[in-house]
Amino acid sequence: MYKKIISILILMCILVTFSACGNVSTVSSNKTDDKKESQGKIQVVVSFNAMREFVEAVGKDKVEVKTMIPNGTEPHDFEPKAKDLEGLNKAKVFVYSGFGMESWVDKSLKVVDNKQLVTVEASKGFESIKNTDEDEIKEHGQEDPHVWLSLKGAEFEAKNVKEALIKVDPSNKDYYEKNYKDFSTQLDSLYNDYKKKFDTAVNKNFVTGHAAFAYLCRDFGLKQNSVEDVFAEGEPTTKKMEELISYCKQNKIKTIFVEDMVSPKVSETLAKEVGAKVQKIYTLESKEDNKDYIQSMKSNLELIYNTLK
């Protein structure tokens, strides 16, 4: 009897051991599969959220994207640390917008040890809007950097992304071409819908927290006025505030738009002075309200259109 009990216990131990080994083997296999799946994708590093949107729209499940500038961080103020640049040493593609938006890029790339890295300045070749303020030009450069807030600009930047992905992965050229075409069609459809609406609007003026929408204005023949400058720096002087109040009253401004990473205090003060409301608008520098690029821009365009009625 005693020997029988011992035999049963030994058998149970053997079964448990084999079962555990099987589980370990399965877990190990899953980890390996995950690693292979990750390794099979093109490793892409982007500067900020809008660039991530374009890479994912074109690359979809063939890319793995890491964003350098965290959500909630103002890109104009970002300066990368050594740990922020680590991903570039392993990436195949690095995408940034350009036109002075990421002033740190040239300096940072000099310390990156990755000769195979394909670097994409997404706005390269796009017709820029020039800054006119001498202080802005001196500090940030000649161009307004907010290309991605134009539907035409987004289409242009996404095309540059597409060409980079084809360069590093030519075997999937048709895949990237199709995805780009689908994204481009969505952008064109949204543009055409709102071009008709804005063409019929008598009022073309709106007010924002900072001057980020010049390219959008060029798309649709609109005019922005803003509390802060192109690079979201500095509160307005008393004279500037008086001019804004006068501007809002003359143009019957009903809404003052504010952005997620710009202080709303001055905009709220301005809104009270002119009897307007404060309304959030997306700059897509960070992921906001779980909306993708098309959803965010459609929201922006509808909000702006409604203020012009």
Rank of each mutant, 00 (worst) to 15 (best):
V147A: 13
Y96K: 08
W104P: 01
V45Q: 07
R52D: 03
E56K: 06
N114G: 11
V105H: 08
A57P: 04
H76A: 07
D84S: 09
F126V: 04
D77C: 00
Q116A: 15
T73P: 00
S28L: 03
V65C: 01
E56V: 13
K110H: 09
V112N: 10
D34M: 11
L117Y: 07
P145M: 00
G22A: 08
N71S: 08
S123D: 11
D144N: 11
H76R: 02
M12E: 11
I42F: 05
E64F: 05
P70A: 15
E86H: 04
E74Q: 10
E143L: 01
V63G: 05
L11Y: 06
E121K: 13
F48I: 09
G59A: 08
P75N: 00
F126R: 12
S123H: 13
I69A: 02
K36F: 09
D113Y: 05
I129M: 14
F18M: 12
D84Q: 06
D33H: 11
S29V: 04
L117E: 03
L149H: 13
K60S: 09
V44E: 12
S108T: 04
D135C: 00
S108Y: 05
K31E: 04
T17M: 03
H76W: 06
D84G: 08
V93Y: 06
F94I: 04
I14Q: 00
D61R: 12
V147D: 11
E74H: 04
V120A: 10
A91D: 03
E136V: 15
S38L: 15
I69H: 02
V44A: 14
A82S: 13
T17V: 12
W148Q: 11
H76P: 05
Y96L: 02
T17Q: 00
F99V: 07
E134P: 15
S128F: 14
V44F: 13
F99R: 13
V63C: 07
A20M: 09
M68W: 03
G22V: 09
S28G: 10
G22C: 05
L85N: 02
Y96V: 12
E74I: 01
G87D: 01
E143T: 01
K107T: 15
I14T: 06
V27G: 01
V44P: 11
S97Y: 04
I137D: 00
L117I: 04
A82C: 03
E139V: 09
G72R: 05
D34N: 12
K115R: 10
S103H: 06
E86R: 05
V111A: 15
D33G: 01
F18E: 07
V95Y: 06
F99Q: 06
K60C: 03
S25T: 14
V46E: 01
T132M: 03
V55E: 02
V45I: 05
E74D: 14
M68V: 03
S108G: 09
V16K: 02
D113G: 08
K130H: 10
P145S: 00
L15R: 02
S47C: 05
R52S: 10
P70N: 14
K36D: 10
S25D: 07
F78G: 06
K107I: 14
K66S: 13
V27I: 12
F126T: 05
D34S: 07
H140K: 06
F94R: 03
E136L: 05
E143K: 06
K107Q: 12
M51V: 12
P70M: 13
